[in-house]
Design a protein around this nucleic acid. Structure first.
Length: 108
DNA sequence: CCGTTGACCAGGC
DNA sequence: GGCCTGGCCAACG
């Protein structure tokens, strides 16, 4: 059931529903690696269409600074359009918009 | 087999 | 709030 850790990361990120976000830390925990590796994986991601990397934010809810597909502004626009709630310009309201993973731990 | 490099995090100042 | 530090671990040369 898998070769690379990147694959796992991508699978987790793909499972984030529209209007919700996950943090690098949580993605890391679920896919069994370190937050740093998640950043690595998403950086290497050349397929923003199939992997919604804009739905991954930092642990405190702020937008990561290296979003390469249109910049932070674009990323925020996308999230807002999807229904994600912000408490200020660059911080997502995690109490409201964090994806609470239900039972998928058994899948990864 | 090293050393370096990160879209990170937590803690300290 | 900002800046620095050490820790983390996979990929790459």
């Amino acid at each position: 059931m898998d070769g690379k850790i990147f694959e796992k990361v991508y699978r987790v990120v793909k499972s984030i529903p529209k209007g919700k976000v996950l943090t690098y830390k949580i993605v890391a925990q679920v896919s069994g690696t370190d937050p740093r590796i998640v950043g690595f994986a998403l950086h290497a991601n050349k397929f923003p269409d199939i992997i919604p990397c804009h739905r991954v934010v930092k642990n405190n809810g702020t937008i990561a600074n290296g979003y390469a597909f249109g910049g932070i502004k674009k990323q925020r626009e996308k999230l807002i359009k999807e229904g994600v709630v912000f408490i200020n310009l660059k911080t997502v309201d995690l109490d409201y918009s964090l994806y609470k993973m239900p039972f998928w731990k058994k899948y990864f």
